[in-house]
Amino acid sequence: MMSISSSLDRVHLQVKNNRWLRYFAIFNRVALAAGFLPAGLVKIMGERFASGLTVNHPMGHYLEALHHTSYYYTSIGVAQVIAAVLLLLPGTVTLGAFLYFPIILNICVLTYATRFDGSLFTAPLMVLANLYLLGWNYDKWKYILPFNQPTLADSSTGTKTLSNKFPISFFAGVLAAVVVCVVGIPSLYSIKPRNTLAQCKKQFGGSNRTQAGYDFCDCIHVQGQPLDNCLNAYNQAPDDAARPPAGSH
């Protein structure tokens, strides 16, 4: 019976020997680096990230507080820039991917916790791209796994001939993941704070919960209340048709 490590080595060797998947790995390296370089440089220069976001937005609260943490804020930017540079250098991709992953995973969780439109679909895509790079460089770190067999031949000693066969199934899965992240996941939220008060109110136009929606937006952008408090108030508010006429007793 083939061991787990032997099975993983075989799959990894097949992947590494495909020219299209090699191009995809390079694309992910460049894309991830491009995502962190500007964000990291903004923090290093001491500027507030996402300056167009209102301070009262749940994500705005976080970014505003983070901006006032002195060298902690700067250190995050340094870590992002280092991770990006390491991904661009062929000899340090594995180290860069390991440094990048906890940062982007934290951003992804934070995005969904605050329902932040700015990275609602890009954050999970970046997490998936990071996981692909970790898998691509599996041969560099597999020895830390408890089930790995050190006596097995390293997959890097295999054939160097690259296959030109286009992996249709794999890229169909990539396309499906993009569709889910861009269309499916953001639609999980019936309402979102949006980035501004006007954008927030616009999502309730034509609905039967206009007033409840406007109160929700005011709760977020004007009063600066926690997201959960504003959501609870919205869910408990009646529909427009169920509200008593103005001036009635």
Rank of each mutant, 00 (worst) to 15 (best):
160 K>A: 04
235 N>D: 12
199 Q>M: 08
181 C>G: 09
163 S>A: 01
212 A>P: 02
197 L>E: 11
171 F>P: 06
182 V>Q: 05
197 L>A: 08
186 P>E: 10
165 K>N: 15
225 Q>A: 15
198 A>D: 13
237 A>T: 05
204 F>Q: 09
225 Q>Y: 02
231 L>R: 14
223 Q>P: 01
179 V>D: 06
161 T>N: 00
174 V>H: 07
166 F>Y: 13
200 C>F: 03
202 K>S: 11
160 K>M: 00
184 G>C: 14
217 C>F: 07
217 C>H: 08
190 S>P: 00
201 K>P: 00
203 Q>K: 06
236 Q>E: 14
172 A>P: 08
169 S>W: 12
234 Y>W: 14
229 N>S: 12
194 R>L: 02
229 N>A: 15
161 T>D: 02
235 N>K: 12
231 L>Q: 13
187 S>T: 10
191 I>W: 05
188 L>N: 08
225 Q>M: 12
184 G>D: 11
229 N>Y: 04
212 A>G: 11
169 S>L: 14
227 L>M: 05
193 P>K: 03
231 L>K: 15
185 I>M: 14
168 I>E: 10
193 P>D: 07
200 C>Y: 04
186 P>M: 09
237 A>H: 10
230 C>L: 03
195 N>C: 01
179 V>T: 14
210 T>Y: 08
191 I>Y: 12
225 Q>S: 12
236 Q>Y: 05
200 C>H: 03
206 G>K: 00
167 P>D: 09
231 L>V: 14
174 V>I: 15
170 F>V: 09
194 R>I: 03
199 Q>K: 07
225 Q>I: 00
170 F>W: 09
181 C>P: 03
208 N>C: 05
206 G>A: 00
201 K>R: 15
236 Q>C: 01
224 G>E: 01
217 C>G: 07
183 V>D: 12
215 D>A: 15
173 G>M: 06
222 V>C: 04
234 Y>G: 11
228 D>F: 11
191 I>L: 10
215 D>E: 15
203 Q>D: 03
190 S>H: 13
172 A>K: 09
212 A>Y: 09
178 V>K: 04
220 I>M: 09
224 G>W: 00
178 V>H: 07
211 Q>R: 12
224 G>T: 02
214 Y>C: 02
170 F>D: 02
162 L>N: 00
175 L>F: 15
181 C>I: 06
232 N>I: 10
160 K>Y: 02
221 H>C: 01
208 N>Y: 06
223 Q>Y: 06
219 C>T: 05
217 C>Y: 06
166 F>W: 10
186 P>H: 06
192 K>Q: 10
185 I>Q: 10
177 A>D: 06
168 I>G: 05
165 K>D: 11
199 Q>Y: 01
164 N>A: 05
174 V>E: 09
221 H>W: 05
195 N>F: 04
217 C>N: 05
161 T>S: 00
205 G>H: 02
168 I>N: 02
175 L>S: 15
206 G>E: 02
188 L>C: 09
163 S>T: 02
220 I>L: 10
180 V>E: 08
180 V>K: 07
216 F>A: 00
183 V>M: 13
